[in-house]
């Protein structure tokens, strides 16, 4: 079932966008005007419960060929949630603009970076619109230069710094200060040696088969990863899964009454 499908016709698209914006703002304004704070809270609680109820019912009801009577509605409901979420996007942009405009206005340290942000935002948006709708080749080139030539390399450069951070974190983690650290360092050395040819060469004189073969460094390393490490990962995973269920239930039934959920 496709309710929120893409519209190709520009006139229809404009009509849809304007109508949805006007309709949404009208609904929000009416709610703001006529609903008390308590009624708004109850409305949110009811909506939260209904949304959770829909997804859990869809999951638990028996399905034939992977579908039950609610399955066709999963996509439209998901799309509707994405549309609601999209309403918050301009708020984020406004927040970003306010912070950086304040930097420029008050000439705070590094204010020119804020200026770069505005210039980059306008340049990216303009080039993307002009290349997509007006099919201007110059706009395409500018967009490609900014996105492929600048934005992606900057992201990759940031990611590449991880290599150095891993070394410094590992140095601190493996400092031998107590028995636990000695055990951890020993395990780490075995796992690292098990991944490289030199490590495998160290125990290559041991037979490939039989009980003694378990002492070959690649097998010990594999045992650490698949038995010791995996069992702990799964234990943490079980705890997280149950914790996630408990938290989801608290949100679903609106039992989470902290300040973050409108409580005191």
């Amino acid at each position: 079932m496709k309710i929120f499908h893409p519209v190709k016709d520009p006139t229809l698209l404009t009509v849809y966008i304007v109508a949805s914006l006007v309709g949404s703002f009208l609904v929000l304004a009416l709610m703001h005007k006529f609903l008390s704070l308590r009624a708004k809270g109850r409305f949110i609680t009811a909506l939260t419960f209904l949304a959770g109820f829909f997804y859990s019912l869809e999951f638990f009801l028996p399905a034939k060929n992977g579908k039950n009577f609610l399955t066709p509605w999963v996509e439209p409901v998901g799309d509707a949630l994405a549309v609601i979420g999209a309403f918050a996007f301009p708020l984020g942009l406004v927040s970003l603009a306010i912070v950086h405009w304040g930097n420029i206005k008050r000439k705070r340290e590094g204010w020119y970076f804020s200026l770069v942000l505005f210039i980059a935002t306008i340049a990216m948006a303009l080039s993307a619109f002009l290349s997509y709708y007006a099919h201007l080749s110059i706009a395409k080139k500018i967009y490609s230069c900014l996105f492929d030539g600048l934005y992606i390399p900057l992201g990759v450069a940031m990611m590449s710094t991880l290599a150095f951070y891993i070394v410094s974190a590992a140095y601190r983690a493996f400092r031998v200060t107590n028995v636990d650290a000695i055990l951890m360092m020993g395990a780490a050395i075995i796992v690292m040696l098990g991944q490289i040819p030199f490590g495998m060469w160290l125990t290559s004189w041991l037979p490939m088969q039989g009980i003694v073969s378990s002492l070959r460094i690649e097998n010990v390393s594999n045992w650490f990863m698949t038995v010791v490490n995996m069992s702990v990962q799964r234990a943490i995973g079980f705890g997280l899964a149950v914790g996630g269920i408990a938290m989801a239930l608290r949100v679903w039934f609106s039992l989470e009454r902290g300040m973050q959920m409108g409580g005191k």
């Binding site: 997280l240 914790g243 009454r257 902290g258």
Partner: peptide, 19 residues
Amino acid sequence: LIGEEYYAASAYISREPII
């Protein structure tokens, strides 16, 4: 915070019996 300790935050801070 390791594992489900993360999800105990609101209970630990609020001490609300239900949580």
